[in-house]
Amino acid sequence: MPYVGRMRISPKYDVAGGVGDLWTELKRPQPYRWPILFASCALTGLGLYPFIKERVYPPPPKPDIVYLTSFAPDRTDAEIIASNVENQERKEARQRLLDAQIEKRREMYRALGQATGIDTDKMEAEIAAEKAREEAAEKARLEQATGGAGNDSADDRSE
């Protein structure tokens, strides 16, 4: 059975002897004992100060996950289709509004260009040609990447 008793840090160190020596030195009548003691404590405090100031923040708690369902689980296929049609109509209405805003902005820039003497028709033709080149390059890149498979699927969707 192992020995269970008071554990010591090491048999080499005698804390009681060190404390006794400190007390003996403090009892001696020396003119600089208190300033030396204060300076020793201050240096020790300055050495420990950065560690005392250090703040360690724990990681935030894990959030509670709440699942929200926006659709009734017992919807019929007809209700799902009607909801999809309604959403598609709203999406198309937003796109028409956005297109109208873009066209209005283009008209304002055309008017500004004509007022300042810029050939807006020529600029629009250059922009359209550049866009056509970019689309052709993208189409060629896709054909090369896919080996020519599925070339007309993107054209069918846009019609």
Rank of each mutant, 00 (worst) to 15 (best):
E138F: 08
Y109L: 15
I127T: 05
S153H: 03
A115S: 15
A125C: 01
S153T: 09
Y13F: 15
R96Q: 09
E92I: 15
E92P: 00
A72N: 14
I9S: 11
S83R: 13
F51R: 14
G47W: 11
R90S: 04
D119C: 02
D155Y: 07
R55T: 12
Y57V: 13
D155W: 04
L46I: 10
I127R: 05
Q114M: 11
S158G: 00
M7I: 14
D152G: 01
G147R: 02
R75N: 04
E107C: 01
Y49M: 15
A128H: 07
A149M: 09
E143L: 12
W23C: 03
I118H: 06
A78H: 09
G17P: 00
N84R: 14
G45Y: 12
K131W: 03
P60R: 04
T24H: 11
A154C: 02
R96A: 10
A129P: 00
K53C: 06
R55F: 04
R157W: 07
A78V: 14
L98C: 02
E92K: 07
I65H: 03
S40V: 04
S10A: 10
G117A: 03
L46S: 06
P50G: 04
P2I: 06
R110T: 06
E107D: 13
T116C: 07
R110G: 00
Q95V: 10
Y49A: 15
A154H: 09
P63Y: 05
G150A: 04
E143H: 06
L22W: 11
V15T: 05
D155G: 03
R133E: 08
G18L: 13
T120K: 00
Q101K: 12
M108T: 10
A129V: 07
G20Q: 14
K122S: 12
E126P: 00
A82P: 00
A78R: 14
K53D: 03
D99Y: 12
R157E: 08
N84M: 15
G148L: 05
S158M: 07
A115R: 13
V19E: 06
P31H: 04
E86C: 02
G148T: 09
T24Y: 10
E126W: 05
Y32E: 15
V85C: 04
D119V: 01
R157G: 03
Y109D: 01
R8H: 08
Y109C: 01
A39F: 05
S70Y: 11
E126Y: 11
G47F: 13
G113P: 00
F51A: 07
T146S: 15
N87K: 12
E134L: 15
I127A: 10
M108I: 09
L98T: 10
K91A: 14
D14E: 10
A129D: 10
E130W: 09
R141T: 03
